[in-house]
Every structure is written in structure tokens, then in C-alpha cells.
């Protein structure tokens, strides 16, 4: 299950999964805004040209067109970069998809600072906050390409709006094919009773590495992959709070409105424990994606340090 040693970009799952699902008979259409080659959605266009609609660099229109296609009974995928959908067309996502609850799936690549060299304008750090504010959207942040393929299939087979956030670079593949993504369920990757790290996306492998560091110090760190942000596994959060007494959240996204906000809302209500939210607090900048993670301290070492602090605090109070 864990740490296969292979790397892949989560966006690589999009095109092949859509092709497979369409071959299996799902009534999928893809609306493209001139980034289908990057998001890999164009692979679907090669296989099913009559179901692949190019709209040019016009995301507002692309989202509206996807909504219209969905209203005729299609499973409408619209694909771009997260800074463009939802970033460039939030009102269209809100009014043309979310409010009427149409069967549109937004597959957004280039989430987070790991987008890398293109710099701050291309690095979406706000998309999860935007999407989570829309009550009808299911929001998924797959940790690797295996989980991403399954999340896409889940989105395609269930009615209603979905947002799937993918990344540009080749990141560690942590799951093998025996893994089963479950909507609304956190996946416990590592047991531990002293502290919990909850992570999404590229921060999941970082959390696993942090747990290794902590284990060497005699600290048992639970690691949860929180890929399903909505529906959210509140039970897993409450259990982590009760059983481990401290939580570190980790996301390549603004600390405002993402995983950390979701988790603290649940703990504040059900079981108040210290929660350290690790994420972005500024805009990004250009650089190699792995350098950027170091630069902005989205690292295993940082997560371990935050977890250690929570454990020390708990022991001090005990």
C-alpha cells in the first residue's frame, strides 16, 4: 500500500480514466479551455472527438457550456488549471453549476505551489477555500495518481458537482492498485496514539516521512490522508482528537479556508484540542517544486516539529 518508490503527476490520471470510463459506456463529454494537453484531458479528445468541445481560452464560457451539456444528461467534465477554474470564473462555477446542482466535474490541475517555475500567478492557493464555500460541491484532493484515477471514477459515477484538484509535477506514488478510495472517508496510513498529522495532496508523503522522524524519537504519530474534504470524515477527526490529543494539518494551499479550517471547525465543536495548521500564508514564487516546498517550509521536518510541539505541550499539561 505505502510508498511504491514510483513517481507520477496526479493529472496523468485524467485522460486515461475518462477514456476508460467512456469505453465502459458512461456518457462523458469534455469541455476544454485550451489546456487539455496539459491536464491530459486531450487524450479523451483523441479517442472521442465528437464528445470533446474546444472553447478556447474562455473559462467563463467553458463552465457555462459544461453546465448546459450536463443539463442534457451528459457527465460533463471541464478541465483547466485551478487558477483559471475556479479562479477566473468563480461566479460561473457558483451560479451555473453549484446553485442548480448540475452534473459538472471540474478537474483542475496545477494546484498549489508545486506548480513551480511558472510562479505566483500560476500557483493556486485559494481554490479549495472557494470550492468549499459552495455547498453542493464535493471536493477531492487526491494524494497520488492511483487515488486520483479512483476519485475521477467516483465523480463520474455519482450525480452532482465535483471538484478534483490535481498537481503538475511527478510526485511520489504512495498507493498500489489494491487501494480503494472511499468518498467521505479519511484513509489511515499509519497508526499512532501520541499525535495526528492530517494531510492532503503532496503533503501526504511528507506526513508519512514526518511520522518516521517522530517514530525515531519514540513518538507515535497517526497519519490520515484527508483526500475527501467534502464529504468530510468528521468521525476520523473526532477520533484523532480524542485518541491523540493534538492534530497537525498539512496542505499546499492557503491556511485560510482549506483543510486546517475544516478540521478546526470540527474539533472546536466536538473535542477541542490544539491544532497546528501548516499551509501557505503568502503568495508563492518561481522555483523548482521541491525547492519551493523547502522554501515555504512545507516539509516533513516542519510537520515533525509542529507535532513534537503538540506532544510536549500535552506532556507538560499532563
Amino acid at each position: 500500500m505505502v510508498q511504491t518508490g514510483r513517481t507520477a503527476a496526479t493529472r496523468e490520471a485524467l485522460g486515461p480514466t475518462l477514456v476508460r470510463l467512456a469505453r465502459e459506456g458512461l456518457d462523458i463529454v469534455v469541455v476544454d479551455a485550451d489546456l487539455g494537453v496539459s491536464t491530459t484531458a486531450a487524450q479523451f479528445g483523441r479517442e472521442f472527438p465528437e464528445r470533446f468541445f474546444t472553447m478556447g481560452v474562455a473559462e467563463q464560457n467553458a463552465v457555462g457550456v459544461a453546465a448546459g451539456l450536463a443539463a442534457t444528461g451528459k457527465v460533463a467534465f471541464v478541465s483547466s488549471f485551478a487558477v483559471f477554474i475556479p479562479g477566473h470564473c468563480y461566479d460561473q462555477v457558483r451560479m451555473a453549476v453549484a446553485q442548480p446542482n448540475l452534473n459538472v466535474k471540474i478537474a483542475a490541475s496545477h494546484g498549489g505551489i508545486v506548480t513551480g517555475e511558472d510562479g505566483a500567478s500560476a500557483q493556486s492557493l485559494e481554490d479549495l477555500a472557494l470550492m468549499l464555500a459552495l455547498p453542493t460541491f464535493r471536493v477531492i484532493v487526491p494524494a497520488d495518481v492511483v487515488e486520483c484515477a479512483q476519485a475521477i471514477e467516483e465523480a463520474a459515477r455519482r450525480y452532482g458537482p465535483f471538484y478534483i484538484r490535481m498537481v503538475r509535477p511527478k510526485v511520489p506514488v504512495i498507493y498500489d492498485e489494491s487501494y480503494r478510495f472511499q468518498l467521505g472517508k479519511a484513509h489511515r496510513l499509519r497508526e499512532g496514539e501520541d499525535v495526528t498529522i492530517m494531510a492532503i495532496g503532496v503533503m501526504v508523503p511528507a506526513a508519512l516521512e514526518a511520522a518516521e522522524i517522530l517514530a525515531r524519537e519514540g513518538i507515535g504519530c497517526r497519519v490520515l490522508n484527508m483526500a475527501s474534504l467534502r464529504p468530510l470524515d468528521e468521525e476520523a477527526i473526532v477520533a484523532a482528537a480524542r485518541e491523540t490529543g493534538g492534530i497537525v494539518t498539512a496542505e499546499d494551499h492557503s491556511v485560510h479556508g482549506g483543510l486546517g479550517s475544516l478540521v478546526t471547525r470540527v474539533t472546536a465543536r466536538e473535542c477541542p484540542v490544539p491544532v497546528a495548521c501548516v499551509g501557505m500564508e503568502t503568495f508563492g514564487t518561481s522555483g523548482r517544486w521541491d525547492e519551493l516546498l523547502q522554501h515555504f517550509e512545507l516539509t516533513p521536518q516542519r510537520l515533525a516539529a509542529e507535532a513534537r510541539r503538540l506532544v510536549e505541550r500535552k506532556r507538560g499539561e499532563g
Partner: peptide
């Protein structure tokens, strides 16, 4: 047939409907 209120959105939705009908 559709929600509206923020201007500029209807024609895109109509384009999607027309593409779906043709398909």
C-alpha cells in the same frame, strides 16, 4: 430552465444545451 441573475451567463448555458442536442 436555468438559474440566472448575474448577467452574461445564459448564452454559454444555451451553447452547452445546443451542443448536447446535436450530440
Amino acid at each position: 430552465e436555468m438559474s440566472a441573475g448575474a448577467l452574461g451567463m445564459g448564452l454559454s448555458f444555451a451553447v452547452g444545451l445546443a451542443l448536447g442536442a446535436r450530440l
